[in-house]
Design a protein around this nucleic acid. Structure first.
Length: 926
RNA sequence: GCGGAUGUGGCGUAAUUGGCAGCCGCGCCAGACUUAGGAUCUGGUGCCGAAAGGCGUGGGGGUUCGAGUCCCUUCAUCCGCACCA
């Protein structure tokens, strides 16, 4: 006697969980004749807070997809690991005086327990942790490959430094100028040979894809570390919200800018959402234009600008250079010195935050110097202003006020004259960035369309030797050093202040255990505290910084293919077999950093011949965030009286978050509330209709909002199968949605209905071996068809609906036929594996349902011989007529015309048109 | 400001991609069984209307025999970037 009761569910779910584990049902082999499929989740950072109901959304989806592909006969790799290095663990360790190794391991085991509770089919034998020396050995190794590479622009790929050296020996750098366009000097082969070791290494450093240089970094004093651009949001740190300032430091960087074009091109062949691709394009920020050099009047100096609109060169009324520009010192006239000094002082006084907050504020100062327009010969005043960024282009612009809004505002503010080169397109009130105007006041360009002038001007300045075509990117090289303890040490040794790669055989360079990793505050990393470790010998030093968390995450998907290999980061055969990740599921917040760095590392490894693919992820799915419902109570100021929502406006109240578990249907459990915190022990309540009604807001799920719902609690109440299906039922996977359990009973009822299909009304398992009816077969095959389509297209919410329809229809038909139930159990098993496994075994099978083949639908059960079609007359449905499905179009038309209803509406006349679409819908036009 | 997306019952959502709008679920209403229920089962449920019928996919316009779906325009919300020359 078995009923689908809570106790029974618990027994069933535990039983199968253990069974799967015992038989290693999820273990995947690298050696299989089956076609491969690689389904990957973004591995989590194991925070101390554990999982909330939002986390599993993506994992459930990937697990369903994995089980589905497996049933379809694929060898599916579906691994899981932990992104375990990082700042939060380090800070927690600092605050609580524990070793991050220990707290991280505790968090990981907690995560794994919660994940097991959801019965994800991960092959745990492949687990990786980025903080494991066996793992980061290879992170360091790949870093060294990048360090030992340069980007050959001629071949558009990374090549070994040794190849660069032989080029230098032969011909110097005339064919391979410095990647940094600010360094323009060239050297010959014999120059190169005459360089001493230090000089050679310095030159090479300018080419390496991982390089050490003084760079402007985002320094966060409070965290004592450097942050990447994407870790700074509106001038404050993404974690903690501390102020961030620019500072020059000697840092490791990855020369990702060399790959900008390949990263852009790669987007065309991968299946990411439009918005995701757009975010990446935006971040890379490619713009094409020209670099034009202006002579400076009465000076040896020149001023180079970058412009996307060389066609507007006759409209240049002023030049603006960034306040930090090196030319400012050299060209400022004595008369203007005071103005400039004052302005520089003002700029310096402004923090990054001020500057961002007051973007629209117009400021600036005149240097007193003039530039000479190379085409018109006119003299143009040179200004400085903070709206021109030192880091982009050349740090200087040509101001064309009639065509550029910012330039227009600048000219207006300082009352600079404005030259109109676009005739009626410019109205004097607003700049117009058109490309359509015919040029005026533009010398030899007069009468030319701007579109055409663009090329003409570029050719002209190239011919004159004062400019050239140039492509600029917003993206900067990626800062790769962190002044942190809890990360991968750099596998280099400094001799004579030059970093040399460590010998591969001595990897990993183990992160030394210590509790002394408080930031020195000097800008050196915490490892600098460990003198014995840092100073290898009198003349050999290690790097005191560590790599960012992105490092370990940039290649973990490769390690999963062969996680225990100690000879290579992964065996070539495994890499070739598993190849690209077929489906990658994770949050959209990793759009820029993680996804770009992963794509970069794979491209470098591809170029160096370690891989045969150069994009890691074929398809990306961004699951939406599940946000929480926070509940509020309203405390009258200065009292212990709590006012119900409807009455709060009559009092002066404070809004307080209240633990979500204490609220049911917006009604507060006042007794439980009193017990929640000692402060509320003596709380009094002002009720409405005898109830205390709480307020509601949709907010991020967070401990501090008391709105965390632990999946373990939901499972305890409803079962794992229910939670899995309910999270899918909630709405489209990619959409963000608030968590509430309003509909979860419906999913639970469905599972019971499904269970009852195979059980009689005494609760005994009973299926019939009789042949199913036509109607039953139709329900079955309709469901299989829909489920196959929905899972393939990740429409899991409609898929769950389809199962519900199926259960309703079969329930109504009282269908308990083995030939119907068996395929349905297999089809449902990706969603609700436990209940399906149990029914499968009740059906008398000794093998796992997850090893079966997914049923194929047959169209023959779905087609009907005739159909009732609605007949519309002038757009209104007036009748229904029955036609055979294979009836020719002409016959349908004849029948329609002959029908009484149509005659009545046409008053006997022949209608203008009879429309038959897809052999289905009929519309009669009078 | 630029870019991306979204807008459908009381609520979450669906619509074979241009073909009877509202599937499925929640909620609600009615009934059955009941120890009288926060259990289960059955039926109903877009809005207006007694009904016939009419109106309905953020608003306005258009294309079409036919529009939630396509085009133009406008509003609202969310996300990303934000002085990038």
């Amino acid at each position: 006697m078995s009923e689908y009761s809570k106790e029974e569910i618990k027994r069933i779910e535990n039983k199968w969980r253990e069974e799967w584990k015992k038989k290693q049902a999820y273990k995947v082999s690298n050696d299989s004749p089956k076609p491969k499929c690689y389904v990957l989740d973004m591995f989590p950072y194991p925070s101390g807070a554990g999982l909330h109901v939002g986390h599993p959304l993506g994992y459930i989806a990937s697990d369903i997809y994995t089980r589905f592909k497996r049933l379809q006969g694929f060898n599916v790799l579906h691994p899981m690991g932990f992104d375990a290095f990082g700042l939060p663990a380090e800070q927690y360790a600092l605050e609580h005086g524990v070793d991050p190794r220990i707290s991280t391991q505790q968090n990981i085991s907690n995560f794994k327990k919660q994940m097991d509770n959801l019965s994800f089919g991960f092959d745990w034998s492949r687990e990786v942790q980025t903080c494991d020396p066996e793992y980061y050995k290879w992170t360091q190794w790949i870093f060294l490959q990048i360090f030992d590479s340069w980007f050959n622009r001629k071949n558009e790929k990374a090549e070994r430094i040794s190849e660069l050296i032989s080029i230098f020996e032969k011909e110097g750098n005339k064919n391979h100028p410095y990647p940094n366009s600010k360094i323009t000097n060239t050297f010959s082969g014999s120059d190169w040979k005459s360089f001493d070791e230090k000089k050679k290494q310095e030159v090479l450093m300018e080419y390496r894809l991982a390089y050490l240089a003084f760079t402007d970094v985002n320094w966060c004093e409070a965290l004592g570390t450097v942050l990447a651009n994407d870790e700074v949001i509106n001038g404050v740190s993404y974690r903690g919200g501390f102020p961030v300032v620019k500072r020059q430091m000697r840092q490791w960087s990855l020369r990702i800018t060399e790959y900008a074009d390949r990263l852009l091109k790669g987007l065309e062949e991968i299946d990411f959402s439009d918005s995701m691709k757009e975010i990446q394009r935006n971040w890379i920020g490619k713009s094409t234009g020209a670099r034009i050099t202006f002579k400076i009047k009465d000076s040896e100096q020149t001023l180079a600008v970058f412009t996307t609109r060389p066609d507007t060169i006759f409209g240049v009324d002023f030049m603006v250079v960034a306040p930090e520009h090196e030319l400012v010192k050299k060209i400022t006239t004595a008369k203007q010195q005071n103005d400039i000094d004052q302005y520089l002082k003002y700029v310096e006084s402004r923090s990054e935050i001020d500057r961002m907050a007051e973007v629209k504020k117009i400021t600036g100062a005149f240097t007193g110097a003039y530039a000479i327009n190379p085409l018109s010969g006119s003299e143009i005043p040179i200004w400085i202003s903070e709206y021109v960024l030192a880091g982009y282009g050349t740090g200087a612009i040509m101001g064309v006020p009639c065509g550029d809004e910012r330039d227009f505002k600048f000219a207006n503010h300082f009352k600079l004259p404005i030259t109109n080169i676009i005739g009626k397109y410019y109205d004097g009130n607003e700049a117009n960035p058109t490309y359509d105007a015919t040029l005026e006041n533009s010398g030899f360009l007069n009468g030319m369309k701007m579109k055409d002038a663009l090329e003409v001007v570029v050719n002209k300045v190239e011919e004159m030797g004062v400019g050239k075509r140039q492509v600029n990117y917003k993206m900067r090289d990626a800062g790769w050093s962190r002044q942190r303890y809890w990360g991968e040490p750099f596998p280099v040794i400094y001799r004579n202040d030059i970093p040399y790669a460590m010998d591969e055989k001595s990897l990993p360079l183990i992160l030394p255990p210590t509790t002394n990793f408080k930031s020195s505050g000097s800008g050196e990393g915490p490892l600098a505290n460990l003198k014995d470790w840092i100073n290898v010998s009198d003349h050999e030093k290690r790097d005191s910084n560590t790599m960012p968390t992105h490092a370990g995450a940039a290649w973990y998907f490769l390690r999963f293919m062969d996680p225990h290999n100690d000879k290579a980061f992964a065996d070539r055969k495994a890499l070739d077999y598993w190849n690209q990740v077929d489906v990658y599921i994770g949050g959209a917040e990793h759009a820029v950093a993680h996804l770009l760095y992963s794509r970069l590392w794979v491209k470098v490894l591809f170029d160096l011949g370690y891989l045969n693919f150069d994009e890691p992820f074929k398809k990306l799915i961004n699951q939406g965030m599940i946000v929480g419902e926070s509940k509020f109570v309203y405390r009258e100021k200065g009292t212990n009286r709590f006012i119900s929502l409807g009455l709060k406006d009559q009092h002066d109240t404070d809004e307080l978050h209240v633990l979500i578990n204490l609220v049911n249907n917006n009604e507060l459990d006042t007794e439980a509330f009193k017990k929640w915190k000692p402060d509320f022990e003596n709380a009094e309540f002002v009720l409405e209709d005898g109830k205390y009604i709480t307020g509601t807001a949709i907010e991020k799920i967070s401990k501090s909002y008391f709105n965390v719902v632990n999946p373990d609690d939901v499972i305890a109440q409803y079962s794992t199968d229910t939670l899995r299906m309910y999270e899918m039922f909630l709405g489209p996977l990619e959409q963000s949605k608030p968590w509430n359990t309003n509909g979860i009973d419906g999913v639970f009822r469905f599972l019971r209905k499904f269970w009852n299909l195979g059980h009689d009304n005494t609760g005994k398992f009973s299926v019939s071996d009789a042949e199913p009816t036509k109607e039953e077969m139709k329900v079955l095959h309709k469901t299989i068809k829909k489920v196959t389509q929905d899972v393939t297209s990740f429409s899991f919410n409609t898929c769950v609906s389809e199962f519900m329809i199926c259960a309703n229809e079969l329930g109504a038909l009282k269908c308990n036929k083995r030939k119907v139930i068996e395929p349905l159990v297999i089809a449902l098993s990706p969603f609700a594996p436990h209940i399906c496994e149990e029914i499968w075994s009740l059906l008398g099978h000794n093998d796992f349902v997850l090893d079966q083949s997914f049923p194929k639908y047959e169209e023959k059960y779905l087609v009907e011989s005739s159909f009732n079609y609605p007949i519309s007359i002038n757009g209104k449905v007036r009748a229904e007529m029955n036609f055979a499905l294979d009836m020719p179009k002409e016959d349908i038309e004849k029948q329609v015309l002959a029908s009484e209803i149509v005659r009545k509406w046409t008053e006997g006349k022949t209608p203008k048109k009879v429309i038959v679409v897809q052999g289905r819908i009929v519309n009669v036009v009078l």
